[in-house]
Structure formats: C-alpha cells, structure tokens
Design a protein around this nucleic acid. Structure first.
Lengths: 191, 191
DNA sequence: GGCTCCATGTAAGGAGTTACATGATTCA
DNA sequence: TGAATCATGTAACTCCTTACATGGAGCC
C-alpha cells in the first residue's frame, strides 16, 4: 500500500531533520502555516508507529546526554518510499484544494444581504493576518535543503495573495447583487 | 455542536437546489473541480442521516411521477444553522489550504536531481489540465443564486493560475540548486 | 516550588473509505 | 435485452479527534 499524505509528510520531515524525535515531528505540524494539518498526538504518534512497523522508519534511543527519547531515522526502504510518494502526482492534484473561505462564499447567498459585507471583512482580515504570518516565518534553521522550504513558503504566500485579490472581486460582485446597483434584481433567499 | 465542513456544504447544496435527492447532493460532490472532497456514499448518506436526525434537514417522499426517492428540504432550524456555519470564519482559515503538490515540493530535495524537472513537468501538466477543466465548467443550471457559483469558480481559477506562476518560479530555483549554475554547491541528499 | 517545555502515549467515540448489496427507470 | 443512470444503503475496517494520563529537565 502507498503512503497517506500524513505518512508521506512525516517521512519528509524526518528526512530533512534526522535524527529527530516524534515530538519534534509533531512540533513541525503545529507550526505549519497551512490550514488542514491536524497535528493531534492521536494522529501523529500512531502514524509513526505504523511507519516503524512498515520498516520505513527506525527508532533508536538517544545516545548523548539528551532526555529520555527515541530518535527517528529513515531506513533505506524509507528513502525509497519517500521518493515514490513525492513523485506520486495524480491528475486531480493540479486543481485548487478545498478552501474553507471559498466554500463559504459559495453559499454566501444564504446570508442576509446586510451581513455579507461584514462576512467579507472577516475573510479579508483573516487572509491579511495569514499573509503577515506567512511572510514573517523564518525557515527552520535545523533543516537541511532549505531552498525547498523557501519555495514552499513562497507558494503559501502567493496563494494567500491570490485569495486576497479574489476576495476584493467577490466584494464587488456582492455589492452588485446586494441591491445597491440593481435593487429590483435582488435574488430571493431560499429562506 | 457546530457543523463539520461536510455537513455545512450539504446544507448549502440543499439550500440552492431544494427539493433535491441525496443522490443529487452526492453528484455535486463528484463533479466538484476541487481537490479534497470525498463524495463517497459511506460519507454522504450517513451525514445526511445525521442532519435529518438533528432536524436541520427534512425528507419527504417525491410526489410527481418521479422515481422512488426522498426529497430533501432545509427546515427553519436548518436555515439558521447554515447561516451560522457560513459566518463561522476562524483566523486560521485565512491561510493557504494544504496543497498536495506544494507539500511534495517541500520534499523535492529527496528526489535525485535528474528527476526533479520531470516531476515539475508533471505538476505543471496537472495544473494546466485542472485550469482547463475549471474554465470550462458551466455553472449548475438548476441552482439558484448563481452569482456565488460564478464567484467560486473564479476563485478556483485564480488559485490554479497562482499555482502555475509559482511552479515556474520553483523550476528556476530547482535549476539553480540542480548544479547547472553552482555545481559546487549541490546539496547532499539525506540519502 | 512552580512553570514551561520536552517527551510519549492510550482509550472512547466519531467519522470516513472501500467494498458489497439491491433494485427501478430510461434509452438504444 | 442490456447498459447506463437514478436511487439508497450497510458492514468491516481504518483513521482521526478529544481528552486523559504520566513524568523528567531546566529555569526563575
């Protein structure tokens, strides 16, 4: 069986930071600027156990004066499976991923007209805050191959910028529909 | 308890298409141009049952000469909960959602240098195909409030275009790192 | 001494995936 | 008459969420 997204990312994290603890892997998820990673212990620790069971990760007790902890390494098999996972681009991955704000805008007509601008304000605030966080993040100094981290951070930034440009267009559309321009064409809410 | 993303979208779909069958709801998910919606029967049908149990959806047998089927409607409570769900913008939603291609680019350094350009070719192809599909989709003629559908479709399109611009930058970065410009600075793979 | 961070788990319950299962209608 | 579409579900399994649970190390 092939790796899930979560398992693939765990292998990726270990590959750029090994040797590292399960705790450190989880910290990476917690610090992710991206919407959609869970980072709950109940997901990460069992996933790592599965990967050890598949012999793609190996754990050895820490040597030096470190605290009681298990250090994780990729096995040779793990290096191979990581490469396979990274290469596994499927056609549908080219599309836009689910975005909770876009999803909600799809049903914006369900909101009373008077609340739509406030809703869009909130979306824009959230996006602006996220953009600030994204441009402010320093790449992990412990990681090797930092150019990929920079590439990814740039990707996050460009996606948020595109979202902001789009939100401003949506505002225009909502104003037109909100009756300010064509009051007689107000769409009836399903309610 | 508040609605999950899946449950919220189901309410949204029913609100713009009611009365409609569970089958029709599921078809919407299947036709979604977006990466991340599952559309499996084992997810949708139980979710609709839950929503009926919560009295936000109501099902009535179809009247007219239609096939044996149950028509879904939003209850008054459902209309309220849909509005609450649409309005529920949280800070972290402003960020970029998880994108499987971006995720993989993060660990692109795990691939042998010779395979990286081919990988990026695949990503670009997938994105171009997705963009073609996204610009080609006709908005659902049965839906009310089609301006929101247009807004959402535009959002999908703009996100994919941003992804394409980004992929071209990543290609440049990968070339630099691939040794064509600074051969002596090739990063060592973790392998 | 108490707070924060490092470090690792488990248990119950809920939700999703995959595969199995059924049957009517429409159209070529 | 067969294929596609409409239509609805369930069962086993896996996985994730939330909450609980524990304990050492470093620091003020």
């Amino acid at each position: 069986m092939s790796l899930s997204e979560l398992e693939g990312v765990i292998l990726g994290i270990v590959s750029t930071r090994q040797p590292c603890t399960a705790y450190a892997v989880r910290s990476r998820f917690e610090q992710s600027p991206t919407w959609g990673w869970s980072s709950s212990k109940g997901a990460i620790y069992p996933a790592i156990s599965r990967l050890i069971g598949r012999a793609v990760l190996e754990s050895r007790p820490a040597e030096k004066g470190r605290r009681k902890s298990e250090m994780l390494f990729l096995t040779t098999k793990g290096e191979g499976e990581l490469q396979v996972w990274v290469s596994s681009i499927r056609e549908e991955m080219g599309g836009a991923p689910v975005d909770p704000i876009r999803t909600r805008v799809n049903y914006l007509a369900a909101l009373p007209i008077g609340e739509r601008q406030a809703f869009l304000d909130q979306c824009e605030e959230a996006a602006i805050a996220a953009l600030k966080r994204a441009t402010g993040t320093v790449p992990d100094p412990d990681a090797q191959n930092r150019w990929t981290l920079h590439a990814t951070a740039l990707g996050v930034q460009m996606q948020i910028e595109a979202k902001l440009r789009w939100l401003r267009i949506v505002r225009e559309l909502a104003l037109d529909q909100g009756g300010l321009i064509f009051p007689e064409k107000m769409p009836q809410e399903p309610s």
